[in-house]
Amino acid sequence: MAFLHNLGTICILIGIPFFVSGTIGLLRFPDIYTRLHALTKADNVGLGFVVLGLALQAEQWNTVARLLLIWLLVLVASSASCHLVARAALRKKIQPWSRS
């Protein structure tokens, strides 16, 4: 049990840097498309690790099921809203950033 608990903690610790880098990307990237990319990519993987870690530490099976459900819902909601925001930005004719 202690082994699983520690493994869970490690997973959560792996997940946190993804959130941090996603936030830095949101603050530092040049335009809306790159920021969306940073947010969704990083948060999805980060949340995946955090959920995995919490699932390993969970004491009951139904908690694990609920955590998985939350992860799936966040995945669906965040990717769909990312798509919608990007599409709205494209329709407003916001040009994607390029280095030149």
Binding site: V76, A77, A80, H83, L84, R87
Partner: peptide, 8 residues
């Protein structure tokens, strides 16, 4: 709605 929103 677009396909993504409709599916959602």
């Amino acid at each position: 709605p677009g396909p993504v929103l409709a599916t959602l």
